Amino acid sequence: MYPILIVEDEPSMLMGLKDNLEFESYEVDTAEDGEIGLNKIMENHYSLVLLDVMLPKISGFDICKKARAKGIQTPIILLTAKGEEIDKVLA
Results as ranks from 00 to 15, higher is better:
13 M>L: 08
17 L>I: 08
49 V>P: 09
12 S>N: 00
40 K>S: 10
37 G>P: 07
39 N>H: 08
31 A>C: 05
43 E>Y: 02
22 E>M: 03
26 Y>D: 00
22 E>S: 03
47 S>G: 11
24 E>K: 07
15 M>G: 02
30 T>K: 10
28 V>H: 10
43 E>H: 15
50 L>V: 05
41 I>E: 13
14 L>T: 02
42 M>Q: 15
37 G>S: 08
46 Y>C: 13
20 N>A: 10
14 L>H: 12
24 E>M: 04
16 G>H: 01
24 E>L: 06
33 D>C: 15
53 V>F: 02
10 E>N: 11
31 A>R: 03
48 L>A: 01
37 G>R: 05
36 I>W: 09
12 S>M: 06
35 E>L: 12
22 E>D: 08
25 S>Q: 09
11 P>Y: 06
13 M>G: 05
16 G>W: 03
38 L>T: 11
29 D>L: 09
47 S>D: 14
40 K>I: 05
35 E>R: 07
25 S>G: 05
12 S>R: 09
39 N>K: 11
41 I>Y: 04
32 E>G: 14
50 L>H: 05
30 T>V: 12
24 E>V: 00
18 K>V: 10
21 L>Q: 04
28 V>F: 13
43 E>C: 13
42 M>C: 14
10 E>T: 13
45 H>L: 00
15 M>Q: 08
27 E>M: 00
24 E>W: 02
45 H>S: 15
23 F>G: 09
42 M>L: 14
27 E>C: 06
37 G>F: 05
20 N>D: 14
18 K>A: 12
50 L>T: 00
33 D>I: 06
20 N>R: 08
